[in-house]
Amino acid sequence: MTGAGTELGLLGRLFRTADPTPARAVSRAYRVGRGLAGGAAARRFVLLSDSADAASSAGSEVGERERGLVFAVAGRVLDLALTPEEPGSLRASGMVLSRSGQPVPGGEVVFRHPTGTRRGELDAGGGFRIRAVPAGPVSVLLCPRTGGRAVTDWFVC
C-alpha cells in the first residue's frame, strides 16, 4: 500500500465485506417510508434527563438494571423507568405529572415499536405499568384524557 487513498480504500472494502449495512436493516428503513406520519401530529416531548448519561458521568453503578428517563412538553412531565424483564423485553413504569407536579390521571401511555404497540392505562395517581416492551427502537405516545397528545422521539431501549 502506498497512499492514504489505497489504505482507506482497502479498509473500506474490508468493512463493506465484513460489516456491511445489513440488507434487513435497509429493508426496515425502506418500510419506514410507508407510514411517515405516525406521530407527526402530536407535540414532541423533550428529553430532560437520562440515567445512562448521569451514571456514565458519575462513574457509578446507579441504573445498572433500571434506566430512568424524564421527558417534558408544555404542561406535562413523563417520568419513565425501563427495567429488563426477560431477554429482549423490558418492563416500563412511571408517572405522568403536570408541570406543577400534580398527577395526571386517566388516559393512556402507548409504547410504539417498529412492529406494533404496547399500551398501558394511567391510574388515578398518574402512574402506569407496561410489560413486555420489546427491546430496540421505541417511541412513547401520551394520550391523556384531557389535553393534547405528546410523543417522544424514537430512542433505543
Binding site: 419506514v32 417498529p114 427502537p137
Partner: peptide, 8 residues
C-alpha cells in the same frame, strides 16, 4: 437498532 431509530 440505532439505524432503525434514526430513520424512524
Amino acid at each position: 437498532d440505532v439505524w432503525q431509530a434514526t430513520w424512524l
